[in-house]
Measured scan of single mutants.
Amino acid sequence: NRLGIIYEIQGMKAVVLTSEGEFLIIRRRKDMKVGQQVSFENEDIYNV
Rank of each mutant, 00 (worst) to 15 (best):
N1Q: 11
N1D: 09
N1Y: 15
N1K: 10
N1P: 12
N1R: 10
N1H: 12
N1M: 14
N1W: 12
N1E: 11
R2T: 05
R2D: 02
R2W: 10
R2V: 04
R2S: 06
R2E: 03
R2F: 09
R2A: 04
R2Y: 11
L3E: 09
L3I: 13
L3F: 13
L3Q: 06
L3A: 10
G4Q: 01
G4M: 02
G4D: 01
G4I: 02
G4L: 02
G4C: 04
G4A: 06
G4N: 02
G4R: 01
G4V: 02
I5A: 04
I5P: 00
I5L: 09
I5F: 10
I5W: 12
I5Q: 05
I5E: 03
I6G: 00
I6R: 00
I6Y: 00
I6F: 00
I6Q: 00
I6V: 14
Y7F: 07
Y7W: 14
Y7V: 10
Y7P: 00
Y7A: 08
Y7S: 04
Y7G: 02
E8Y: 14
E8L: 13
E8S: 14
E8M: 12
E8V: 13
E8I: 10
E8P: 00
I9G: 00
I9S: 01
I9E: 01
I9A: 02
I9F: 15
Q10V: 11
Q10I: 13
Q10E: 11
Q10K: 12
Q10P: 01
Q10H: 15
Q10G: 07
G11A: 10
G11Y: 08
G11W: 10
G11C: 15
G11F: 09
G11M: 06
M12S: 14
M12E: 15
M12Q: 13
M12T: 11
K13M: 06
K13V: 07
K13L: 05
K13W: 14
K13Y: 13
A14H: 01
A14S: 04
A14K: 00
A14I: 08
A14P: 00
A14N: 01
V15I: 11
V15A: 06
V15Y: 15
V15Q: 05
V15F: 13
V15R: 13
V16I: 08
V16M: 03
L17K: 06
L17Q: 07
L17S: 04
L17N: 02
L17G: 02
L17W: 15
L17C: 05
L17D: 00
T18W: 04
T18A: 04
T18D: 03
T18H: 01
T18I: 04
T18G: 03
T18M: 03
T18K: 01
S19F: 12
S19N: 12
S19I: 10
S19V: 05
S19G: 05
S19H: 09
S19D: 10
S19E: 08
E20V: 08
E20L: 08
E20H: 12
E20M: 08
E20C: 12
G21N: 08
G21E: 03
G21W: 04
G21A: 03
G21S: 06
G21V: 01
G21I: 02
G21F: 05
G21M: 05
E22C: 15
E22N: 10
E22L: 13
E22I: 14
E22T: 13
E22M: 14
E22H: 12
E22V: 14
E22R: 13
E22Y: 14
F23V: 14
F23Y: 07
F23D: 01
F23A: 04
F23P: 02
F23R: 05
F23N: 02
F23M: 13
F23I: 11
F23L: 10
L24V: 09
L24A: 06
L24T: 06
L24K: 04
L24C: 06
L24Q: 05
I25H: 07
I25Q: 07
I25M: 13
I26Q: 01
I26C: 03
I26M: 04
I26R: 01
I26G: 00
I26E: 00
R27W: 14
R27A: 05
R27P: 03
R27M: 12
R27N: 08
R27H: 03
R28A: 04
R28T: 13
R28G: 11
R28Y: 15
R28L: 15
R28F: 15
R28E: 01
R28C: 14
R28Q: 05
R28P: 03
R29M: 06
R29S: 06
R29T: 11
R29P: 04
R29K: 13
R29W: 09
R29Q: 05
K30P: 13
K30H: 15
K30F: 10
K30M: 15
K30R: 14
K30G: 15
K30W: 14
D31W: 12
D31C: 15
D31M: 14
D31N: 08
D31E: 13
M32I: 04
M32D: 06
M32N: 02
M32C: 04
K33T: 08
K33C: 08
K33M: 08
K33A: 07
K33F: 06
K33L: 07
V34A: 05
V34G: 02
V34W: 05
V34Q: 06
V34T: 05
V34R: 05
V34C: 15
G35W: 06
G35H: 06
G35A: 05
G35Q: 03
Q36S: 09
Q36E: 07
Q36A: 09
Q36N: 10
Q36V: 09
Q36L: 07
Q36C: 13
Q36R: 09
Q36T: 08
Q36F: 11
Q37S: 11
Q37N: 09
Q37A: 10
Q37Y: 08
V38W: 14
V38F: 05
V38N: 01
V38G: 01
V38E: 01
V38D: 00
V38C: 08
V38L: 07
S39T: 12
S39P: 05
S39A: 10
S39F: 09
S39V: 12
S39M: 08
F40C: 02
F40N: 01
F40R: 01
F40Y: 08
F40I: 06
F40E: 01
E41D: 11
E41F: 10
E41G: 11
E41Q: 11
E41V: 07
E41M: 13
N42R: 08
N42A: 09
N42H: 11
N42S: 11
N42I: 12
E43G: 05
E43I: 03
E43D: 12
E43K: 11
E43N: 07
E43H: 05
E43A: 06
E43S: 06
D44C: 08
D44G: 02
D44V: 02
I45V: 07
I45H: 03
I45Y: 04
I45A: 06
Y46G: 09
Y46C: 15
Y46S: 07
Y46E: 07
N47F: 08
N47R: 04
N47Q: 10
N47M: 08
N47L: 06
N47D: 11
V48I: 11
V48Y: 04
V48P: 15
